[in-house]
Design a protein around this nucleic acid. Structure first.
Length: 400
DNA sequence: TTCCTCTGTCATTCC
DNA sequence: AGGGAATGACAGAGG
């Protein structure tokens, strides 16, 4: 874990004071500085309570389901409609062809700072206007980040609430990284933990995504927050229209958070699972920056490779199982051959004894008849002698 | 604390 | 040339 100093009490102390001053723009900047100074936003080590404690979020019934893009509540009640539009991203991508953009309502962006209101992707998705019929943004729609939205209406009360919620959210999400086995090799942006854990290519780590994400921007601070706590992930699984096992696997993964940090406007599930053609079509619908494009391609590569690795290991285990079965069969066969060899050896021994006995009888008989002694090899050359012996043994075995 | 297993990722090769 | 599959190797998490 990267070092993460305890949250400064000053951070807590300043915001309430600021709340009392409703009309000072300069204090807004100060408030932001305070918010940005909260070390928990770095996604680092903070003493948390329960891993998924969401008690700090207030009434959960007010929460709109997290669709993978994030949802804002809007004071004018447009939030749910937008939520539905966003959720429709979960529907099969090729179900419909995006039509020409129709009238798009301008939505006032006033996040209520519930648990889903912090990631850059989530906010940007909420801000990004979508076609009410197709649920797609207009082709080449510009992607705006949370704090790049010109309609942002941030009140000091919002800031105070956000400050509190951020702390709670971070605590709730603290265990998220622990749930993953991500080695973070390409997590080359300001995820302090990963940067510290990866010892292999420290220089490269600093180079890639660090270039992609400028340091210390509002977008970074919020985009790099940990993923949502388990209760929201569960809700995602319940409401998702595609395979939930895959969803759980992908949602809130580090790639998911990278995508959030970079305001990638579509889910990693789509990035990974779409066929090339559909994937390229999807990309063509948005104007992505080079870093965004690089990240999307990395996510796709990692996702594909992850599945490939799983298949590879599965095949390897199956191959091992087959080979072990073959080994068992070969051992059985070897035992049989060994027993057969022993049996043949015994037969050969018996035959040799019989032959020697017979030879001795013949010699004795010849001596008794006054014939000179001739060794048996004189009658049969050695090779022929052995072959006859073998033939005799074989015929005996066949008869048996 | 150490060891082992599982999993994600990267690098590389091949198709 | 680019994308994907396959796979060895490595590293972190967790039991």
């Amino acid at each position: 874990m990267s070092p993460c100093p305890p949250r400064s009490q000053e951070s807590n102390a300043v915001l309430p004071n600021l709340m009392g001053d409703q009309n000072v723009q300069g204090d807004m900047d100060l408030a932001w500085q305070e918010i940005l100074s909260i070390t928990e936003l770095q996604g680092l080590d903070v003493q948390g309570d329960s891993m998924y404690d969401i008690s700090g979020y207030g009434n959960q019934a007010q929460h709109i389901p997290f669709s993978g893009y994030g949802v804002c509540n809007f004071p004018d009640g447009t939030g749910p409609a937008l939520t539905q539009a966003i959720q429709n991203y979960d529907h099969p991508y090729m179900d419909s062809t995006p039509a020409e953009p129709q009238h798009l309502p301008t939505l006032p962006v006033v996040p209520t700072f519930g648990p889903t209101a912090y990631t850059g992707m989530l906010i940007s998705s909420s801000i990004t206007q979508v076609d009410a019929n197709t649920h797609y943004p207009p082709k080449n729609a510009p992607m705006t980040g949370l704090f790049g939205a010109p309609t942002m209406d941030m009140t000091m009360a919002n800031i105070h609430n956000m400050h509190q919620d951020i702390h709670t959210l971070h605590q709730a999400c603290k265990g998220q990284d622990d749930l993953e086995s991500d080695s973070g090799l390409s997590l080359n942006f300001s995820d302090g933990e990963s940067m510290e854990l990866d010892h292999r290519e420290p220089q490269r780590l600093q180079s890639e995504y660090m270039e992609m994400i400028p340091p210390l921007t509002y977008q970074d601070q919020y985009g790099l927050l940990p993923a949502l706590p388990q209760p929201f992930m569960n809700h995602i699984s319940e409401t998702s229209s595609y395979d939930t096992s895959q969803t759980e696997e992908l949602v809130c993964s580090r790639d998911e958070r990278r995508a959030a940090a970079m305001n990638i406007p579509f889910p990693t599930e789509r990035i990974v699972n779409l066929p090339v053609e559909d994937f390229n079509d999807l990309l063509s619908r948005f104007t992505l920056t080079e870093p965004q494009l690089a990240l999307v391609k990395d996510i796709r590569r990692r996702g594909k490779n992850k599945v490939a690795a799983q298949n590879c290991r599965k095949r390897k285990m199956e191959t091992i199982a087959v080979l072990e079965k073959d080994i068992g069969q070969l051992r059985t066969e070897r035992e049989g051959l060994r027993r057969e060899q022993e049996e043949v050896g015994r037969i050969m021994g018996d035959l040799k004894k019989n032959l020697e006995l017979l030879e001795q009888q013949v010699i004795n008989l010849l001596r008794n008849q006054g014939e000179p002694h001739y060794p048996l090899e004189d009658f049969f050359p050695k090779q022929e002698y052995d072959s006859k012996l073998f033939a005799a043994a074989s015929s005996k075995e066949t008869r048996a």
